Amino acid sequence: MKIENITSNKKQFIDLLLLADEQESMIDKYLEEGDMFALYNDDLKSICVVRKEDEGIYELKNIATYEKYQGQGYGKQLIDYIFEHYNQKCKTMFVGTGDSPLTINFYEHCGFIISHCVKNFFVENYDHAIFEGGKQLIDMVYLKRDA
């Protein structure tokens, strides 16, 4: 297994990024200024984008694993890697996600705790309704993990 820092041609991974954030215009808001990491185990399994928000504050903007590889620990390995990568710079890492037990449980398993909520985020910022697990996502739930 290897993890690479992707510094150019980040759009080549758009198919995978769209699994976690299904509107390309939203991805465009953070893709170029964020740091991208790709996890390979023979072939590409997972990708993530992390952006510095303030001194010591970072946000995991996107993390996605191809569906056929989900549940095999690749996402957690990538999160563990980024905490090691940013260990001297990051005091707190945030991640925003929909109010879905599937994703919230994943982040809690990775050591995050619920921080706050942004009401109506998905309704006001996306041009179509977003569904996960049969439930429409309305609010953005932020979780945080201190380094």
Rank of each mutant, 00 (worst) to 15 (best):
E4N: 14
E4H: 13
N5R: 14
N5M: 11
S8M: 08
S8V: 12
S8P: 05
K10Y: 01
K10V: 01
K11F: 07
Q12I: 08
Q12G: 04
F13M: 11
I14T: 14
I14L: 14
D15Q: 15
D15E: 15
L16D: 05
L17K: 14
L19K: 13
L19Q: 11
E22V: 07
I27G: 02
D28K: 15
K29L: 15
K29F: 07
Y30R: 11
L31N: 09
L31H: 05
E33S: 08
G34R: 12
F37G: 03
F37W: 10
F37R: 13
A38N: 06
L39W: 04
L39Q: 02
L39E: 00
D43I: 14
L44N: 03
I47A: 05
I47H: 02
V49K: 12
V49L: 05
V49F: 03
R51L: 01
E53V: 13
E55D: 13
E55Q: 12
E55S: 11
E55F: 13
G56R: 08
G56V: 00
G56D: 01
I57S: 06
I57E: 07
I57G: 01
I63R: 08
I63V: 03
A64R: 10
T65F: 06
T65I: 05
T65N: 06
G71Y: 07
Q72C: 14
G73D: 07
G73T: 10
G73V: 12
K76H: 06
K76W: 00
K76N: 02
Q77H: 02
D80F: 06
D80M: 04
D80Q: 13
Y81R: 11
I82D: 02
I82V: 10
F83D: 06
E84H: 14
Y86G: 02
Y86S: 04
Y86P: 00
Q88A: 15
Q88P: 08
K89C: 00
C90G: 01
M93W: 03
M93V: 02
D99N: 15
S100M: 04
T103E: 02
I104Y: 00
I104F: 01
I104M: 03
N105R: 14
N105D: 13
N105V: 06
Y107N: 05
Y107T: 05
E108K: 15
E108H: 04
I114L: 08
S115A: 10
S115Y: 12
H116T: 06
V118E: 15
V118G: 03
N120I: 12
N120D: 15
N120A: 11
F122K: 14
V123I: 15
V123F: 09
N125E: 02
D127C: 14
I130F: 04
I130E: 08
I130W: 04
G133K: 12
K135D: 09
Q136Y: 00
I138E: 09
M140H: 05
M140N: 09
M140C: 07
L143F: 06
K144T: 10
R145K: 15
D146G: 08
A147Y: 11
